[in-house]
Computed example of a mutant assay.
Amino acid sequence: MLKELMEQFEMASARYAADNGMERDDDWFVLKLQEEMGELIQIWNKVTGRGRRKGMSDAELATALADETADVLGHILLFAHRNGLDLTAAVERKWRFRPEA
């Protein structure tokens, strides 16, 4: 499942980069992930009363929080794809979904 998502995000990201004349070098993937984390934190601060809502309703904040979380997920998957990481195996190992016998 993660591999399919990685491939879908990769196609969307490559298309976006081509349409906007961007080069996605090795650093771009981790820097973009950091940028998206910053955007998630900004929204979280608004949701939790630590930042100005700027007129956003509760529904708009909930949508923005979901959108920024999706961006972070996408960029994690892009980073893993770029670096040839097997996230499925790593999750199973690290989170002990399939503990060793």
Rank of each mutant, 00 (worst) to 15 (best):
D19H: 03
L5A: 14
M37T: 09
E36P: 11
L2G: 10
F29D: 08
S13G: 03
E35Y: 11
Q8E: 07
R15G: 00
F29H: 15
I41R: 09
L2E: 05
Y16S: 01
F9M: 05
L40P: 02
R15M: 05
A18E: 15
R52P: 06
M37I: 14
E4P: 00
R50P: 00
M37R: 10
L2Q: 04
I43V: 15
R52L: 11
E39D: 13
M37N: 08
L33S: 04
N45G: 06
R15L: 09
R24L: 15
F9I: 03
A14D: 12
W28S: 01
Q42W: 05
A14E: 14
M37H: 13
E35K: 13
Q34L: 15
F9R: 09
M37W: 15
L33T: 05
G49N: 09
M11W: 06
F9D: 04
R24W: 03
A18S: 11
D25S: 10
A17Y: 00
R50M: 12
D25R: 06
I43M: 08
K54H: 14
A18C: 02
M11A: 11
L40K: 07
L40F: 13
K3W: 10
I43A: 02
Q42H: 12
E35A: 15
F9N: 05
Q42F: 05
G51D: 13
D19G: 00
R15T: 08
E10R: 08
R24S: 01
D25A: 11
G21W: 05
F9C: 07
D25Q: 08
E10P: 00
E36W: 08
N45T: 11
E10L: 06
Q8L: 08
R15P: 00
F29N: 06
E35M: 14
G38K: 08
L2V: 11
I41N: 05
T48N: 13
M1F: 15
V47Q: 06
E36D: 03
R53K: 15
R50C: 04
M37C: 14
D26C: 02
N45V: 02
L5G: 03
L2H: 04
